[in-house]
């Protein structure tokens, strides 16, 4: 029995020795690469579905081929006009000067609305912009773009340092002499400079190209948003101007807040983490930053502090503030669990 005890002690010592082992860097990287491939594979649609899809596509192609042969190949004038790549452009705004020929050029505080794809561009005084087909040339000034999901050829925003490729998003571009700044609120963008180098831009980012940093003027939209209406709306302070103003401070302020809240969270000082986040949320942030901070505050209230009334109140305020919150499903689930009113 004494020998059993001795064996157990030796076993515990050997196990203790193994506790100081760490994965080698090479092995860690190898496993990480494998996990990355695994995640890629999980994000892809399942491979088992390709056979029915292929059959469907082949069938559809045969039907289209038959229809094409059995109908007249000449398109109507209306169809031919619709097929033109140019977009219908509508310009409005009291302090706006616009010229339309083959392209549309605007100067001053304007609202430019296009259809197919649906896009709204709000500019401020001193901005010069030209819409030529699916390319928008921003010569100088500041413009806030709100672009619906683009099908087919993307919209391109040409600036002196290159171009921004857009497939549906909301962002602001400021061209000031030799410098261009792009601030992205939603979606994703690519910036291609003159040499062809591509820089991806993610939501919440403010990126500058060329020259030296210059102060970023706020965007003051000329008119109320009227995305789906052909007629321009009357001039009055726009609801769109609120998010634009909300985005006015640079996102670079978020770092210390995140670090502090993260530190408190890791140390288990949840009340202090909640206070940091609560204080931070009183300030103005880019929408994504504010949403993440607010969601994190809710999680701390709900899961760490187990303060159901405060969590309920916070989640309700969160959903009210971020109506299209990416966390909506999770929050609604939480509210159901917490039995919030």
């Amino acid at each position: 029995m004494a020998r059993s005890q001795e064996l157990l002690e030796r076993l515990a010592a050997a196990d203790e020795a193994l506790h100081h082992e760490r994965m080698s860097k090479a092995a860690s990287r190898r496993v990480a690469r494998h996990l990355s491939r695994e995640l890629d594979a999980l994000e892809q649609p399942s491979r088992g579905g390709w056979m029915p899809m292929l059959t469907f596509v082949a069938g559809a192609a045969l039907v289209l081929l038959f229809l094409r042969w059995s109908t007249t190949p000449t398109p109507s004038i209306a169809e031919a006009e619709q097929a033109r790549p140019e977009m219908a452009v509508l310009v409005s705004g009291d302090d706006c000067r616009a010229e339309s020929a083959e392209t549309t050029t605007t100067r001053g505080a304007c609202r430019v609305t296009t259809r197919s794809p649906s896009m709204t561009i709000d500019t401020i005084d001193g901005t010069e912009l030209e819409v030529a087909g699916r390319t928008v040339h921003l010569r100088t000034g500041s413009a806030l773009f709100d672009v619906e999901k683009v099908r087919g050829e993307p919209i391109r925003v040409a600036v002196p340092q290159g171009e921004i490729v857009v497939v549906g998003t909301r962002f602001r571009v400021v061209v000031d002499g030799t410098r261009t700044e792009v601030e992205l609120y939603e979606g994703a963008l690519e910036f291609r400079d003159e040499s062809g180098k591509v820089t991806p831009i993610f939501a919440g980012q403010l990126i500058g190209f060329g020259g030296t940093a210059a102060p970023v003027p706020p965007v003051a939209p000329a008119v109320e948003p009227a995305r789906d209406e052909a007629a321009p709306a009357p001039v009055r302070p726009s609801p769109r101007s609120k998010p634009a103003a909300e985005h006015a401070p640079a996102s670079s302020d978020a770092g210390p807040v995140i670090e502090e809240a993260e530190r408190f969270r890791r140390e288990g000082r949840y009340a202090e983490a909640a206070t940091v986040l609560r204080d931070a949320l009183k300030r103005r942030w880019p929408r994504r930053t504010a949403e993440v901070l607010s969601y994190e505050l809710g999680r701390i209230l709900e899961r760490r502090m187990k303060d159901a009334p405060a969590a309920c109140e916070h989640w309700q305020a969160h959903l009210k503030r971020f109506e299209r919150s990416r966390y909506r499903a999770r929050i609604e689930r939480s509210m159901k669990t917490l039995a919030c009113d």
Partner: peptide, 24 residues
Amino acid sequence: TTDSRKLALFDEEVDARTRVRALY
């Protein structure tokens, strides 16, 4: 940017890849 990276790491619930990376 550093802040966007911090935000993404802080917001671990957003996408699976970031969460798996952090948990790994």
